[in-house]
């Protein structure tokens, strides 16, 4: 923040708002629907669908409201800072989420699998009792009762994807530079490029998943390797999707004439998120595909 001095103004406290409670209701329906659905109980899909629709509607309305407020100029420096810190802490919680998934990968690979194999060690007093007499520790591993599968070659699509996401990090920064310098065309081009890169990434990723299922025999059922592979790449893919949608929203707003060189918090928040997704991918590439 540069030193724009502001006269004192009261902190903006929004009027009573229906969105939060409705969003909670939507999440309730989503949760309920999911719980019913996975157990093949009544009405699962319907409840799930209703929840999803309601959630999409509220998110539109809520964000629309905030954008409206922002355009009306009700936010000052203090509000801006609050949004920034809020976003940063939110991303922190996401970091913890992914860190735990990496922790799971670490545990399964370096503790669980060797432990299971250790019972067979020739000198072990436990060898006669080993529940998995033919199991040896290696990674990747589908577990003692798993069927075989092949792994994705890191230097094919994944490497390409790394390149795509890294360059999307560059393009989004380029777009930001454009915004700050008031070059709106650069901003639009940068955003569009970033979205295109993100979508291409997703396309490749989907292709890779289907290859894994159809050709490599690598599925959610393929023991710990398949499980950690899909949960990590899957959640990452989900985040790329969300990020791409948010970028698209930013592009739409740019088109509408939103954002000034000084005031464009929403845009910045999305770029933070995008960089975060980028960094997660790098970790994924190294620990899931490569090593």
């Amino acid at each position: 923040m540069n030193a724009v001095t502001e006269p004192h103004r009261p902190y903006y406290i929004p009027n009573p708002s229906p969105y939060p409670v409705v969003l909670s209701g939507a999440l309730f329906l989503l949760g309920l629907g999911a719980a019913l659905r996975v157990n093949a109980l009544t009405a699962g899909w319907w409840v799930l669908g209703a929840g999803a629709l309601l959630a999409v509607y509220v998110l539109f309305a809520w964000f629309g409201r905030v954008i409206g407020e922002s355009r009306a100029g009700v936010y000052g420096l203090q509000e801006d800072r609050a949004f920034r810190w809020g976003m940063l802490w939110f991303i922190t919680s996401e970091v913890v989420f992914f860190a735990s998934l990496f922790g799971v990968l670490f545990y399964e690979r370096n503790i669980a699998v060797p432990w299971l194999a250790s019972f067979n060690a020739p000198h072990s007093a436990l060898a006669p009792f080993s529940p998995w007499p033919h199991f040896t520790a290696q990674w990747p591993n589908g577990g003692p009762a798993g069927q075989g599968f092949e792994v994705v070659n890191p230097w094919g699509i994944p490497a390409l994807n790394t390149l795509l996401l890294l360059s999307s990090g560059v393009t989004v920064t380029w777009a930001h530079a454009g915004l700050r310098a008031g070059r709106r065309t650069q901003l639009k081009a940068g955003l569009a490029l970033t979205i295109a890169l993100g979508v291409t990434f997703l396309g490749f990723q989907l292709h890779e998943f289907s290859e894994a299922y159809r050709v490599l025999g690598l599925t959610l059922h393929s023991g710990v390797y398949g499980a950690t592979f899909f949960i990590l790449t899957g959640f990452h893919g989900l985040h790329v999707t969300i990020g791409a949608i948010m970028l698209a929203a930013m592009l739409a707003r740019t088109w509408r004439g939103d954002f000034t060189p000084e005031n464009h918090f929403a845009f910045e928040a999305v770029t933070w998120y995008w960089h975060f997704v980028d960094v997660v991918w790098l970790m994924l590439f190294v620990f899931v595909y490569w090593l």
Binding site: V104, Y107, E108, I111, A112, V113, W115, L116, P131, W132, N141, G142, G143, P144, A145, G146, T219, L220, H221, S222, G223, V224, Y225, G226, A227, T228, F230, I231
Partner: peptide, 13 residues
Amino acid sequence: FGTHFFSASGGGD
């Protein structure tokens, strides 16, 4: 969904 995070038969724990 058939994952084995917490099941030894798939290498989990």
